[in-house]
C-alpha cells in the first residue's frame, strides 16, 4: 500500500529565481524587524510570572464565578489590587498579584487561597504559584544568558564547519528571526516566561538547522561549479534543497500543531510561537540568509576542491 509517493512540493526541474527578490526580501525583513523593535519598546513584552515575580492562583469554581464577591473578599483581606479574570470557561478564575518583598509574596499566596475557599465554597485550587522578586530577576538573567550563549555557540560552530561569511550571515539572520518573534509575542500578548525562552531557543535551533542544510549545498556546489556566478549558484542550491526545506518545515509544523490546539494554557502559547518561528525560520533561510551570504561572500568564498578532499563528480 502506498509504495510510491503521492505528493511532492516542487518538481525536480524547478528553477525559481529566488535571488531576484533579494532586495525585496531584505527590505520586508528589515521593516518587520524594525516594527518589532518598536513594539518591544512600546507597549513591550508581557512578562510572565517567572520574570516579573508575584502571585498567580488558578481556581475552578463549582458554579460560574461570582467576580464581585471574590473581589470584595480579597479587598477585605487587604488585597484590593488583585487582578481577577476568567480564562477559558466561566468557572475558571485567574487571580494575579504583583510581587512585594519575598516574605510577603509567600504569605499572600496562602491568604489568597483561603480567601477564595471562604468566598466561593467548593472551589478547587488548580494552581498556586508565587515567585519572589529576587528569584524572578535571577531567572530572567539565566534565560537571557542561555539565549546569548546559544547564539555565540551557533556562530562559532558554523564558523568552524564553514567559513566566517556563512557564520556571520546565519547569525545576522537568526537575530532578525528573533526580533520578529519578539514582535509576535507583543502582538499576541503571550506571556514571556521561561517556557517562551525554551520556544525561542528551539526556533533558533530549528532555523539554524535549516540554514546549515542550504549552506551545506552551497559549499558543495562551490566545489562543483567553479565558474558559475555566485548568485546563480546560490539560486541553484536553494532550488535543489527546496523539497527538503519545505518537507522538514511541514513535519515540524504538523508535530507542533496539535500542541497549539490542545496543549492547554501552559503549552498553547509556546506552540503558537513555535509555529510562527517555523514559518519565519523557513522563509528567512531562503530570502534572508542566502542574499546575505551573496553580499558577504561575493568574490570571497573559496572555489574548487578543498585541499585533501576529493572533488564531487
Amino acid at each position: 500500500m502506498l509504495g510510491r509517493p503521492l505528493l511532492r512540493f516542487v518538481r525536480k526541474d524547478t528553477h525559481i529565481n529566488f535571488m531576484r527578490g533579494r532586495y525585496m526580501g531584505l527590505l520586508v525583513s528589515a521593516v518587520l524587524s524594525l516594527a518589532s523593535l518598536i513594539l518591544f519598546i512600546h507597549p513591550g513584552l508581557t512578562l510572565g510570572l517567572d520574570f516579573k515575580g508575584g502571585i498567580v492562583v488558578e481556581a475552578k469554581t463549582p458554579t460560574p464565578a461570582d467576580f464581585s464577591a471574590l473581589r470584595a473578599a480579597l479587598a477585605a483581606r487587604g488585597l484590593p489590587h488583585a487582578s481577577i479574570q476568567s480564562f477559558g470557561a466561566p468557572d475558571d478564575v485567574l487571580i494575579r498579584l504583583d510581587a512585594g518583598n519575598s516574605k510577603e509574596t509567600q504569605a499572600v499566596v496562602d491568604t489568597v487561597r483561603h480567601t477564595v475557599a471562604d468566598a466561593l465554597p467548593g472551589t478547587t485550587i488548580l494552581r498556586a504559584d508565587a515567585v519572589g522578586a529576587s528569584v524572578s530577576a535571577e531567572l530572567f538573567r539565566n534565560g537571557m544568558l542561555a539565549l546569548g550563549i546559544s547564539l555565540a555557540m551557533i556562530l562559532v560552530y558554523i564558523w568552524v564547519r564553514f567559513e566566517w561569511e556563512f557564520a556571520l550571515s546565519a547569525v545576522v539572520t537568526l537575530i532578525l528571526d528573533l526580533t520578529k518573534t519578539v514582535g509576535f509575542l507583543v502582538l499576541t500578548g503571550f506571556e514571556f516566561d521561561l517556557v517562551m525562552v525554551a520556544a525561542i531557543l528551539t526556533i533558533l535551533g530549528y532555523s539554524t538547522n535549516d540554514k546549515v542544510v542550504v549552506y551545506d549545498r552551497v559549499r558543495e556546489n562551490l566545489r562543483k561549479y567553479r565558474t558559475m556566478p555566485l548568485i546563480e549558484l546560490i539560486n541553484l542550491s536553494i532550488n535543489e534543497t527546496l523539497n527538503r526545506t519545505l518537507g522538514t518545515s511541514s513535519t515540524v509544523f504538523l508535530a507542533a500543531l496539535p500542541l497549539a490546539l490542545w496543549g492547554g494554557t501552559t503549552l498553547s502559547g509556546f506552540a503558537w510561537t513555535m509555529l510562527f518561528g517555523i514559518v519565519v525560520g523557513t522563509s528567512s533561510s531562503i530570502f534572508i540568509a542566502a542574499p546575505l551570504l551573496l553580499f558577504m561572500g561575493e568574490g570571497r568564498l573559496k572555489r574548487g576542491a578543498k585541499t585533501g578532499t576529493a572533488t564531487a563528480s
Partner: peptide
C-alpha cells in the same frame, strides 16, 4: 550537532520547566 548544542545550553542554564 547545532541542535544538540542549543539544547545542552538550555539544560545547563535553564531551570524548572526548561
Amino acid at each position: 550537532a547545532t541542535a544538540l548544542l542549543a539544547h545542552v545550553m538550555l539544560f545547563v542554564f535553564g531551570t524548572g520547566p526548561v
